[in-house]
């Protein structure tokens, strides 16, 4: 999140990446686990760096040759160090002799999460609307103004139910458990089934409305929210409009979402149908990691 607003806002870095590198973005949570060709290549590269325990995170920025030889590793905030590393790597790079195209011989199905046939992608974004203490720290300012991004997937069967005027239980629970979260400062903690204390979502004449009360057993994290939205369908009952706005008071932290505003703070989450034009539209929902059925059927 901070990288987007600092490192990848730097014009020199962007120019280098576009002109002199092949840039690739991966969720290494998947890649370091994959028992396949891609996973092997990632472990070859990351294994040469400082984060070479594949039971732990390997996150960072890596420069490597087409032969998998690590050239540089960076995990510093800010653009200065990376700018130098990129420039030097680009100037020094010579195509490694004897390197060939890597042929994909194996795909680990467990980590190949694909959009089910006929399903639609709905962009989900969240923003905290206030409550932070004033700060002069530039990194904290970026956190405080951050807008998150995830995708909600809705199956073809769910769309047909919606078109008939019924909110599918799986869809409502999926939205509540996995998408009514504060992911503005990092990976969110989602909700267990038991933490969904109340959930009401209805359709009337194409308009969605409802409420949700989510709270951990110890009461340290929660979200009281109202939902309102509008739907539209084509002649095949496929969603062609999905606008949903969730507004409420959130409190508490997750393991990777520390330093929220104190007390209860206003959180807004929007859902809009993706059209495939955004880089993030093809990314599987965060909560589908490693177990798509657990995401699609959240009561299990």
């Amino acid at each position: 999140m901070l990288d987007r607003e600092s490192t990848f806002a730097d014009p020199e870095i962007l120019a280098l990446l576009k002109e002199r590198f092949v840039p690739v973005a991966i969720d290494q949570w998947y890649t370091r686990r994959q028992q396949d060709t891609e996973g092997d290549f990632w472990r070859q590269i990351a294994g040469q760096g400082p984060r070479n325990d594949f039971n732990k995170t390997t996150q960072g920025m890596y420069i490597a040759g087409a032969d998998g030889k690590l050239i540089a590793f960076n995990n510093n905030r800010g653009p200065e160090r990376l700018r130098k590393l990129l420039q030097q790597a680009a100037d020094d790079y010579s195509h490694p002799a004897g390197t060939g195209l890597i042929e994909r011989k194996k795909v680990d199905a467990k980590y190949k999460i694909e959009l089910p046939e006929g399903a639609v992608v709905i962009r989900v974004s969240a923003r905290i609307e206030g409550g932070y203490e004033a700060t002069d720290d530039k990194w904290q300012k970026l956190f405080q103004s951050a807008v998150s991004r995830d995708n909600l997937w809705s199956t073809i069967a769910e769309q047909k139910l919606l078109a008939a005027g019924t909110v599918p239980e799986d869809l409502a629970l999926r939205i509540a458990r996995f998408h009514l979260v504060d992911n503005t400062r990092g990976e969110p903690s989602t909700w267990t089934v038991e933490e969904v204390r109340e959930l009401e979502l209805t359709i009337e004449a194409g308009k969605l409305s409802g409420t949700a009360k989510l709270e951990t057993k110890d009461g340290k994290r929660g979200f009281d929210a109202t939902l309102r939205g509008e739907l539209g369908f084509d002649e095949n009952e496929k969603l062609i409009r999905f606008n949903l706005l969730v507004e409420g008071r959130f409190w508490g932290t997750g393991q990777h979402t520390m330093k929220p505003p104190s007390g209860k703070f206003p959180l807004v989450i929007s859902f809009t149908l993706a059209d495939g034009t955004d880089l993030g539209d093809s990314i599987p929902p965060h909560a589908s990691r490693g177990w798509l059925d657990g995401y699609l059927f959240p009561n299990r």
């Binding site: 690739v24 973005a25 920025m61 040759g65 087409a66 790079y93 995830d150």
Partner: peptide, 29 residues
């Protein structure tokens, strides 16, 4: 968004790879 596809491009273009690897997808959450 795929490391093997990117390697193939890097081979063809004779350019190094830059890999942005995060917990959670960098283009997503």
């Amino acid at each position: 968004t795929d490391l093997i596809d990117a390697q193939n491009v890097a081979f063809e273009k004779q350019q190094p790879l830059f890999i942005w690897a995060m917990d959670g997808h960098p283009l997503g959450c």
